[in-house]
Simulated scan of single mutants.
Amino acid sequence: MPDEKNAPATPNQLIALQCAADAEGEKLRALADEQGPASAWTDEQHAARDAQWKAWRDAAVKVHQAVSQVSNSSKTNRYELEMSVKKAARSEAH
């Protein structure tokens, strides 16, 4: 996906990045629902949650960086762009 050395992401790339971040976030929520209260987790459950949290965070960072790059290069409002990308990604998912 795009980085500072390359051209800014296309709208489809931004949506794909957001869909990936949303999917990782959903896996994290499902894992938490499946495992129950954190106070009762085993070391393995904590490790699984930490690994999934990192996967979600890494995906979220990628989309945030790409949105910032597009916003800066196109002189558009970053917040409005991010909200548009999230709306488009979530409408495609449903």
Rank of each mutant, 00 (worst) to 15 (best):
K54Q: 15
Q35Y: 14
Q52F: 09
P37M: 08
R57V: 07
E34G: 00
T10F: 01
T76L: 09
K62P: 01
A47S: 13
V67F: 02
H46I: 15
R90N: 14
K5L: 11
A93K: 08
R49N: 12
K27T: 07
W53L: 14
R78G: 00
A60Q: 13
P2C: 10
K54V: 12
A51P: 04
A59T: 00
D58T: 05
D3K: 05
P11I: 01
A59V: 04
D33N: 13
T42C: 10
D3Q: 05
A60F: 10
V67M: 03
D58C: 04
A60N: 15
E34T: 15
D22Q: 05
R49K: 09
Q52R: 11
V67R: 04
P2E: 09
E4C: 00
Y79K: 13
L14T: 01
Q52N: 10
A66H: 00
A38N: 07
A20G: 06
A60K: 12
G25K: 02
I15D: 05
K87P: 04
N72V: 13
S68R: 06
A7P: 01
A47R: 14
A51I: 06
A66N: 02
A88H: 00
A23T: 09
P2N: 11
A7T: 07
R57W: 09
A23Y: 00
K86H: 03
